[in-house]
């Protein structure tokens, strides 16, 4: 298992060795939360270790149950990306500048303009949790399909997430391109925990916004230009269209999130 030839080289990792890297540059992740700042990006770290079956990859722990030429099945952990909009020290924001809640100011709610102004007291805590579940990769000539289903492991929101992702990569001379389409499903419990309104935050909206499950849809392009064995130039762009069910939350002022980063990446 896992000792067959791996191609292309850019999607392979040397076993039993730490893979460490950092990208330094400039970028920004827009924050769809009302009264929260966008998140500047200065660093993107990468930390990975792959053994025979176990692997750790940027905060995700996994165990490979089956590895074949045409598919892979893993048990995996992951963490929700939604909390990153609220907290600086969420794993998704490691090395990123603080995502801070600004003083409340009058802002039009795009979702429901006839409703009362969405103004909130200090938001209650949205706790961190890990999700655990399974993922499958299907390798085809037209790209890689990832199917994943994970569930809250620590009873924080008792919700589930699922993902359908298609990605494909190309190598042209020194350029390495990867394009991905991502569909993320979040259960009603997840949506309610992060985007629902507590009574202490706003009594009116805690009753009038009813969270429902929904699908976020996204696209991502990562472009690398290989300078040397260690240095790459990096350009990454991601756009996420937030599910209508989530965008309807009065906590949100935008129904999308845009991220871009341009810089240089170094692999140790």
């Amino acid at each position: 298992m896992a000792k067959q030839t791996c191609v292309p080289e850019s999607q392979c990792i040397e076993m039993n060795n730490w893979d460490l890297g950092v990208a330094i540059g400039w970028g920004q992740k827009s924050n769809p939360l009302k009264d929260f700042n966008d998140i500047p990006l200065f660093f993107i770290p990468t930390i990975a270790y792959y053994g025979n079956n176990w692997f750790f990859d940027n905060g995700n722990l996994g165990y490979t149950l089956a590895e074949q030429e045409s598919f892979t099945i893993n048990l995996v952990t992951s963490y929700s990306l939604d909390r990153a909009y609220f907290y600086r020290w969420d794993p998704s924001n490691v090395f990123l500048e603080r995502s801070s809640q600004m003083p409340t100011k009058a802002t039009t709610n795009l979702a429901l303009t006839t409703e009362p102004e969405a103004e909130f007291n200090t938001l209650e805590t949205r706790n961190f949790t890990m999700l655990g579940g399974a993922e499958a990769f299907i390798y085809t000539r037209l790209g890689i399909v990832r199917l994943a289903y994970t569930h809250d492991m620590f009873n924080v929101h008792q919700g589930s997430e699922a993902q359908i992702k298609w990605s494909n990569g190309w190598e042209v001379d020194r350029f390495i391109f990867e394009f991905a389409l991502i569909f993320d499903w979040k259960s009603q419990a997840v949506v309610d925990y992060y985007y629902g309104v507590r009574p202490s935050e706003n009594a009116y909206w805690s009753e009038h916004y009813q969270a429902k499950s929904g699908w976020n849809k996204g696209a991502e392009i990562t472009t690398r230009y290989v300078l040397t064995d260690n240095w790459d130039l990096l350009l990454a762009v991601r756009y996420t269209q937030i599910a209508d069910e989530i965008a309807a939350s009065p906590l949100l002022i935008q129904d999308y999130s845009r991220t871009y980063f341009v810089g240089a990446a170094y692999r140790f």
């Binding site: 896992a2 076993m15 893979d19 890297g21 993107i44 990468t46 692997f55 990859d57 590895e67 991502e220």
Partner: peptide, 12 residues
């Protein structure tokens, strides 16, 4: 020895 990496190291 190498194996597939399941995550894009520079994913956003």
């Amino acid at each position: 020895q190498v194996r597939r990496r399941y995550r894009n190291p520079w994913s956003l």
